[in-house]
Design a protein around this nucleic acid. Structure first.
Ligand code: MN
Ligand code: MN
Ligand code: ZN
Ligand code: ZN
Lengths: 162, 162
DNA sequence: ATAAAAACGATAACCATTCTCAGTTTAAAA
DNA sequence: TTTTAAACTGAGAATGGTTATCGTTTTTAT
């Protein structure tokens, strides 16, 4: 994990940006919450624990910068805030998401899955694909299990009363 | 096209909503700009031509309502505004988009293309898919043609000077 | 050391969207 | 028809995430 920061630092230097303490703390927070999809405010609160003097504007600036460097993806799940999602190292495109309409959880899909579809798009629409965004809306495995359980206990209760 | 409005009206009544003149004018504007991806402000300005007394809040309310009825999809291309996209009649899920990173144009893909991918998602991730959002970012056919043309004329010029 | 460039924190400004509220329209009941 | 309650509306205030501004601090090059 330590070298991950090093490589991001190198990436910054290549474009003559600096890895300031504030930026490093922000990157750390993103690495420590790789699974999550934090808003700028979320990141701000977490970074404050490490670097209490940091300002919200700096967090926004840093996230913007990391987005340009393709270290993070700025994504929008329609809840009124932008969320920042660390890319897998060296990933050439952003991964996919599963948004549960029952509990709101967001799960990730790291597999590509779109290779065939992109071929069709490039051929049939003459569109040179550089990146993509794919989000599925539906019911997550946890909520499905919960629903099934409720169904069963309702059935058992019904047997009792009959 | 006239019956399209009629069917939307029926859909509204089923849920005990009314098709007020303001709502009808808004639906008309959406139908007349089916290819586009209008923001609330865009819709507001266009509706004002038909119904100058309409308020912006009403446009927002109507678009929200049409979104709930799945007549339109509320989408976000990351430019700071929500855009409203009429669904093809009877479509069970939203269509895909091609966003050009050169000229900003948004083209549509009406083909499904995701049937196979969704099967995998349902099986491997135990996720019951209800809808999806798929956007490709890249270079549209127009910009590719333009680039090619520029390349050729540069080559011709270079031959001349050599 | 000195000067120029980058970056920072605080906070004001911006602006898309939502909320509030008093008045109007609609559709069903009387 | 009138009556009445609920749905709906327009104007504009409020909200809240994000960006811009500005004076100060830190970094880098001279
Ligand atoms: Mn993710
Ligand atoms: Mn569309
Ligand atoms: Zn769930
Ligand atoms: Zn283009």
């Amino acid at each position: 994990m330590e070298n991950r920061v090093e490589r991001i630092k190198k990436q910054l230097h290549e474009q003559s940006y600096k890895l300031t303490p504030q930026r490093e703390a922000t990157v750390q927070v993103l690495l420590e919450n790789e699974e999550d999809h934090l808003s700028a405010e979320d990141v701000y609160l977490l970074v404050k624990e490490k670097a209490p003097e940091i300002g919200l504007a700096t967090v926004y600036r840093t996230l913007e910068l990391l987005n340009e460097l393709e270290v993070v993806d700025k994504i929008n799940f329609g809840d009124g805030v932008s969320r920042y999602d660390l890319r897998k190292e060296g990933a050439s495109h952003s991964h996919h998401h599963l948004v549960c309409i029952e509990c709101g959880t967001v799960d990730e899909i790291q597999e590509d899955l779109l290779a065939e579809v992109e071929k069709i798009v490039e051929k049939d629409y003459q569109f040179k694909v550089k990146d993509h965004r794919l989000t599925f809306h539906g019911v997550c495995h946890r909520c499905q299990a919960k629903a099934k359980k409720n169904e069963e206990s309702a059935e058992a209760a019904s047997l009792h009363t009959n």
